[in-house]
Simulated scan of single mutants.
Amino acid sequence: MTALDLIDRKIVAELMRDATMPVARIADRVGLTQTPCWKRIQKLEATGVLTGRVALANPARLGFGLTVFVGVEAPDHSSEWRQQFSRAIDTMPEIMEVYRMAGELDYLLRVSVSDMADFDRLYRDLTDAVPIKNITSHFVMERMRFSTSYPVDTRNR
Rank of each mutant, 00 (worst) to 15 (best):
F146K: 14
I89R: 04
L66A: 04
R53N: 11
D153T: 05
P131Y: 05
R9E: 15
L126A: 03
P59M: 06
A117V: 02
V152T: 15
G52R: 11
I41V: 15
A88T: 08
V140E: 13
A3G: 01
A117W: 01
G71I: 03
V23Y: 00
R61D: 06
V23M: 08
M101T: 12
P59R: 04
A13F: 09
D128M: 10
F119H: 08
V152E: 15
Y150P: 06
R61L: 11
V54C: 04
D118E: 14
N134K: 15
R29V: 06
I132Y: 08
L32F: 03
W38T: 11
T33M: 03
T2W: 03
L126Q: 03
E97F: 01
D118H: 08
A117I: 01
A57S: 08
S114Q: 10
L126G: 02
A13T: 14
R157K: 08
R100E: 04
P75G: 09
S79V: 12
T91R: 13
R40V: 13
P59H: 04
A24F: 00
V130G: 02
K133T: 07
A24R: 12
M116Y: 06
L15T: 11
P131R: 01
L4N: 04
R157A: 13
F85G: 01
R87T: 06
D120W: 00
L62D: 03
S79Q: 08
V72R: 02
T51P: 01
W81P: 02
T35E: 07
D90A: 12
V12W: 04
V72N: 06
V30S: 11
T91W: 01
T154L: 05
R17Y: 02
V130I: 07
L66S: 06
M92I: 10
E97D: 13
I41C: 07
V49A: 00
G103A: 04
F119A: 01
M144K: 12
D118C: 03
C37P: 05
S149N: 13
C37N: 14
R143A: 13
D125C: 02
D8F: 05
T154C: 10
F64E: 14
L122A: 07
H77T: 10
V152F: 10
L50T: 06
R100Q: 10
D128Y: 04
E80Q: 13
F146E: 15
I7P: 07
T127F: 00
G48R: 03
F85I: 03
R124E: 15
E45H: 03
I132P: 02
L126F: 05
I95P: 04
N58E: 12
F139V: 15
E80F: 07
N58M: 06
V68F: 05
G63Q: 05
L109I: 10
L6F: 12
G31S: 05
F85V: 02
L105C: 00
D125N: 12
L105M: 12
A88H: 00
F64P: 06
A19C: 14
A55F: 14
Y123K: 11
A74T: 03
L44I: 12
A88S: 08
T33L: 06
N134Q: 15
T20V: 10
S147T: 15
W81C: 02
